[in-house]
Structure formats: structure tokens, C-alpha cells
Design a protein around this nucleic acid. Structure first.
Length: 423
DNA sequence: TCTGGGGTCCTAGGACCC
DNA sequence: TCTGGGGTCCTAGGACCC
């Protein structure tokens, strides 16, 4: 059996831990640039504020119901997530951290009765140690555990825990679960399934496998197997190394000039290099993209992207920034209002193997490599000690590309100065 | 005026090999 | 004039997740 432990309205719950007056009130958390709703309290959901809805379209509703609005405070949420996961790891030796607010746990060896008691213990301990409320869904596959979790969340009668063990319980749950709410079925596939008269998870579990394979391919087949109790998705206890790393931002204002885009792209490229070093990886390719607002009139819209191969896989800020700048200059077009830019590094290899490659093909670049490496180590050390952006490459300009955050809460758990301000 | 950011997997098709 | 069969690798695009 698998359990899925999922934090309720996670970002809102994080804000509430440090501001208990928010409990029972409608609360929303916005995306970067205070754009869209990315978390809503139950009270906010009840007002009809949709996930992903643009905040400006709901300004009147927010005001009328005195909804508490917060800018995204990712350092706080990331830190609270580590606390939740660390607490869970003490209780559950075999676990997979699935996302910032979810973890799967392997329940092999527990009896049905034991499972119920264990789930209650997990909920209580997490609440006591972190203040974050969670829902727990349990089933014989990850997909069934997901479905159970949804039941636990939607029906107060379950008291936050739903265990699907008997065929009757599974049948009843699948019969009320709509296809678009199955884990792994998104908008496009739901449309197709509904056109094929497949409306519930029960319909889906009984649909001809040949039809599923034809239209939804292998992932669709896996979902069907999992709904029918055959586990295809194992618990992944060790996170596999990343295959790509992306840093991108929407701008708080319109950008038209090349030199401004160059600063922004250099900043994002520098951030990617930093993330590469944290992953202990080196990138062999780099992609830069720039675009206008997708909501512009068609003739004012532009989307430019360019991928370059790095001569040698690298995690060096200067090399990555240089390559990104080259890519940018080939896609920049005069006369557009740019709204967003980003850098993606891919073709990631372990940093050690990239170093071996350097030894194999010595040239000017590798001669300075050891020096460069020590320079990057020093940069990272300084930034860890004195805070992000304490030292950077001259082409970067971290400050100008910070998104708008009008309603930011304090970094309660990661910044001494913020605590002192609060005190 | 104002619409996020960061990922993965799978498939089809083209280029190339013998 | 006739022109096979079996592979691999890479990339772009489309779906999905949080």
C-alpha cells in the first residue's frame, strides 16, 4: 500500500502558521508579479476564486469579502516544506518527496488496522511539529492513493484520512471521480475522453485498452492499470539528477531595449550556473527565449528562442552568461515590448565527467579551468554567507529583475533581519 | 494597467549507420 | 531500369505534473 501525504492549501497554511489571525478568513497567495492565484484557503475557494485566475479580474470580489492577499514568499514555503519532509522522514523510512507539498510513503508491512492508526499519528505529529495541516490518501497504487487523497480533502466526514482497501470502497470512489480529476489526465485528454463517453474513473478503468493505447498512448495505459490496482509507478526514494534547469521571469515592466534584455538574460544565466553547481552538474546546451505578452494583438506578438551547444559542458557563470548573450543577440528583434525572458540549460552531465573531458582535450579554456572553478566556489561561499546577490558577475543585475511583490510577508524562518523586524 | 515558474515523459519523424 | 531491412540517435512538439 501507498500513502500520499498532501499539505492542505500549502502556501496559505504557511502564511497562517506565522499569522494565526488568518485562520478562518479567506486568504490567497499570488504568483510572481502578483499575477495569478496559486493558493487559496477553503474560504477563498468557496468565494469562487479559481486556481490560476488573474488577480486583477477579481479585484472587486477580493475587496468585497476582505480577502487577505499575499505575494508569493518562496523562501518561506521552501523552508516550511523541508520541515514537513524532515518530520515525515522520521516517521516513514521509505518515502518519496513528490513535490513541495506532497510525499508518497510505502506502507508495506502494515495491517489494515495498523495503517489507520499510523495515518492518524502522521497527521498529529505534522501538525504539532510544523503547524501544517495535511490530508492522507491510501491505496494499493500511487494513482489510487491520489484518488483517496482527493476524497479525504473534499469530504469533511473523512477527517483528513481516506483508506481504499476493499473492492467496494475502490468501486465507490472511482464511480464519483471525474476523469479530469484522475492523476495524469489533463484538460486535452479529458475532452477526448468525454467525447468518447468516458466520464468517470470507473468508466476509464473499464474502457477498452486498445482505445486508450491509441489515443492516450503508454501513459494512459499505465493510469488504467493503476486504477485497476496493478502498480506500475514505483516509489522513487532517490531523486534522479535533473535533466534540465530553467530560470525565467516575467518583467514587472515593459522592456524594449537590447541592453536591458542583455542584463536580464545574464542574470538568469548566472542563476542557472549557480543551480548547476548546486546540482553538481554541467550543461552541454543552453537555450535562451524572449517573448512579448501572449495577450498582445497578433502583430505585436513575438516569440524568439535559440539553442546553442557549449564547446565544453560547463557550470561556470562566465561561460554560461557568455553563451546566453550570444544566443540572445541572434533572436532579438527591435520594436517589440518584451514581457518575459528565460534561460534553460540542458544536456546535463555530472560535473566530474565534464572535468575529465577537459583533461582529454587540453586547450586555453582548460588551462584556466582550475582557477575558474575556485572563483565560482568563492562566489558561492560569499553569497551563502552574506545573502544571495552579495557578489555577482558584472553583466548581471539581480535587482532590476525582481518581480513586483506588493504584499510580501516576512521571511520568518530564513532571514534574521526579518525576524527582528517582526519582533 | 494588471495574466507564474519549473519540471518530466512520450512519440513521430528525419538523419544517419551497416 | 531495377533500389531492402533493420537499427540508433536526436529533436520538436505535445501532453502531463506541481
Amino acid at each position: 500500500m501507498f500513502a500520499l501525504i498532501d499539505c492542505n492549501n500549502f502556501y496559505v497554511s504557511c502564511e497562517r502558521v506565522f499569522n494565526p489571525a488568518l485562520v478562518g478568513k479567506p486568504v490567497v497567495v499570488l504568483s510572481n508579479n502578483d499575477g495569478c492565484f496559486i493558493a487559496r484557503s477553503n474560504e477563498a475557494k468557496a468565494l469562487g476564486l479559481p486556481m490560476g485566475g488573474p488577480a486583477f479580474k477579481f479585484r472587486n470580489l477580493l475587496k468585497k469579502h476582505h480577502v487577505r492577499v499575499f505575494s508569493a514568499n518562496f523562501p518561506l514555503y521552501g523552508d516550511m516544506s523541508s520541515r514537513v519532509m524532515a518530520t515525515l522522514a522520521d516517521l516513514a523510512p521509505e518515502m518519496e518527496i513528490y513535490s513541495i507539498d506532497e510525499a508518497f510513503v510505502d506502507l508495506g508491512g502494515f495491517s489494515r488496522f495498523g495503517i489507520a492508526g499510523y495515518a492518524i499519528q502522521i497527521r498529529k505529529t505534522l501538525t504539532r511539529h510544523t503547524g501544517i495541516p495535511v490530508s492522507i490518501g491510501i491505496g494499493s497504487t500511487k494513482t489510487l492513493a491520489k484518488a483517496a487523497n482527493r476524497m479525504a480533502k473534499k469530504n469533511p466526514g473523512y477527517d483528513g484520512i481516506c483508506i481504499l482497501s476493499s473492492p467496494e470502497e475502490i468501486h465507490a470512489t472511482l464511480a464519483v471521480l471525474k476523469v479530469e480529476d484522475i492523476w495524469g489526465i489533463g484538460r486535452q485528454w479529458s475532452k477526448m475522453l468525454e467525447a468518447g463517453n468516458i466520464r468517470t474513473a470507473l468508466d476509464y478503468s473499464r474502457a477498452p485498452a486498445s482505445w486508450i493505447r491509441k489515443h492516450l498512448h503508454l501513459p494512459g495505459i499505465r493510469i488504467q492499470e493503476e486504477l485497476n490496482g496493478h502498480s506500475c509507478l514505483p516509489l522513487e526514494q532517490v531523486r534522479p539528477p535533473k535533466q534540465s534547469i530553467c530560470t525565467s521571469r516575467s518583467f514587472g515592466r515593459t522592456v524594449t531595449a537590447l541592453d536591458e534584455l542583455q542584463q536580464a538574460v545574464a542574470t538568469f544565466a548566472g542563476k542557472c550556473a549557480e543551480k548547476l553547481r548546486k546540482e553538481n552538474s554541467a550543461a552541454s546546451m543552453i537555450t535562451v527565449f524572449i517573448c512579448s505578452s501572449p495577450f498582445n494583438e497578433p502583430h505585436l506578438k513575438y516569440w524568439g528562442t535559440r539553442t546553442l551547444a557549449m564547446s565544453i559542458p560547463s557550470q561556470d557563470s562566465i561561460a554560461v552568461i557568455r553563451a546566453a548573450d550570444l544566443a540572445l543577440s541572434s533572436i532579438f528583434r527591435q520594436g517589440y515590448d518584451y514581457k518575459k525572458a528565460g534561460v534553460i540549460v540542458s544536456g546535463l552531465v555530472p560535473a566530474q565527467s565534464a572535468e575529465r573531458e577537459l583533461l582529454l582535450f587540453p586547450d586555453d579554456e582548460s588551462a584556466g579551468n582550475n582557477r575558474q572553478k575556485r572563483l565560482m566556489e568563492a562566489m558561492d561561499r560569499i553569497n551563502r554567507q552574506y545573502g544571495p546577490g552579495a557578489i555577482m558577475i558584472a553583466a548581471e543585475n539581480a535587482k532590476d529583475w525582481k518581480p513586483n511583490q506588493a504584499n510580501l510577508s516576512a521571511h520568518y524562518t530564513t532571514s534574521w533581519s526579518d525576524i527582528i523586524t517582526v519582533g
